[in-house]
């Protein structure tokens, strides 16, 4: 799925006039697209909801003292035992769904963002090393990348999480394992192109250290495709976590992510108690859509071939 991003984001920004930094240029282009801005606003709202969770929810859904089984499966708008109204209804164990969703957003976003960042760091390190070191190191590293990419993410994650057990840390680990190779492959490709460029040769002939060349000159040029992949992969990671939870190997039930909430609600889909699965599903959908809307524009902006 990331291949779209990879194929179309291989080229980096062309030479830019001095007075306009790449960032301002990027910002300007990004804000030209209303849909992308809508995506950004939506995303910011979702992130603030997640960050402010303890202050804007009537219930802490992780505290078993405040959750009562007598409140289970209440429809939207019902009043709960503790007196507040469950605007989105309650789930099968008596959690207020609104509170559950807001807290679940926290976990889903954290899992997506953390795994994306760790995978990007690992992938960039591997990709740059491979591109710069070349030779045997490159061959070995890239064979590992091939090994990783030769099996689909959902399969590896499924087997890994089944082996590691449950927990936020374990699922993040599994998601990093399935994602890093995408970054490594892309970064290496970009870095190889950059390395052959004249300014790198110039920098090297000036006697700059390898590290300096890599970090100051090659790495910044690889960031554009990495950013594109991050947006795609974060959305992908959040969806993958939900899928693993559906298959029964995801996050623990006591601190449910959106995926766990949906998976739990799944069994109520045919029973008419739609809210248990539909509302967390909508929250997940909005989150992923907002990221994808931004990602789409970022990719278009960072791909100069499409500009007229």
């Amino acid at each position: 799925m990331t291949d779209t991003a990879i194929t179309s984001a291989k080229k980096t920004l062309p030479a830019i006039p001095k007075e306009e930094t790449p960032f301002t240029r990027f910002r300007k282009a990004f804000f030209e697209d209303k849909v992308a801005v809508a995506g950004l606003i939506l995303f910011l709202i979702i992130v603030s909801l997640a960050l402010l969770a303890p202050w804007i929810t009537p219930q802490n859904p992780y505290d078993l003292r405040s959750v009562d089984i007598m409140d289970s499966r209440l429809p939207p708008g019902a009043t709960m035992g503790e007196g507040f109204t469950a605007w989105l209804g309650t789930d099968g164990v008596g959690r207020d769904l609104y509170s559950g969703i807001v807290y679940g957003l926290r976990i889903s976003l954290m899992v997506g963002a953390l795994s994306g960042m760790i995978a990007a760091s690992v992938g960039m390190a591997v990709g740059l090393t491979a591109a710069y070191a070349g030779g045997r190191v490159e061959t070995i590293l890239m064979r590992i990348v091939d090994l990783q990419l030769s099996l689909p993410a959902v399969l590896i994650a499924l087997i890994l999480v089944a082996a590691l057990g449950k927990g936020v840390d374990k699922i993040i680990f599994a998601l990093v394992v399935v994602q890093w190779a995408y970054y490594a492959r892309t970064v290496r490709g970009t870095a190889l192109v950059e390395r052959r460029k004249e300014y790198v040769e110039a920098a090297q002939s000036l006697g700059l250290s390898n590290a300096r060349v890599v970090f100051r000159h090659i790495m910044p040029n690889c960031l554009a495709p990495v950013i594109v992949i991050i947006t795609v992969q974060t959305a992908h990671a959040i969806a993958l976590e939900a899928t693993l939870s559906f298959l029964g190997v995801g996050l623990p039930q006591t601190e449910p992510s959106l995926g766990v909430l949906i998976a739990n609600g799944f069994q109520y889909m045919l029973s008419g108690k739609y809210w248990i699965s539909v509302f967390p599903g909508l929250a997940l959908l909005l989150t992923i859509v907002s990221i994808n809307l931004m990602g789409d524009r970022i990719r278009d902006v960072l791909n100069p071939r499409l500009e007229k």
Partner: peptide, 13 residues
């Protein structure tokens, strides 16, 4: 974008 974003299992049911 919807197609990308909807979880497969949810759409299935």
């Amino acid at each position: 974008i919807l197609g990308f974003s909807l979880p497969t299992f949810w759409v299935g049911l």
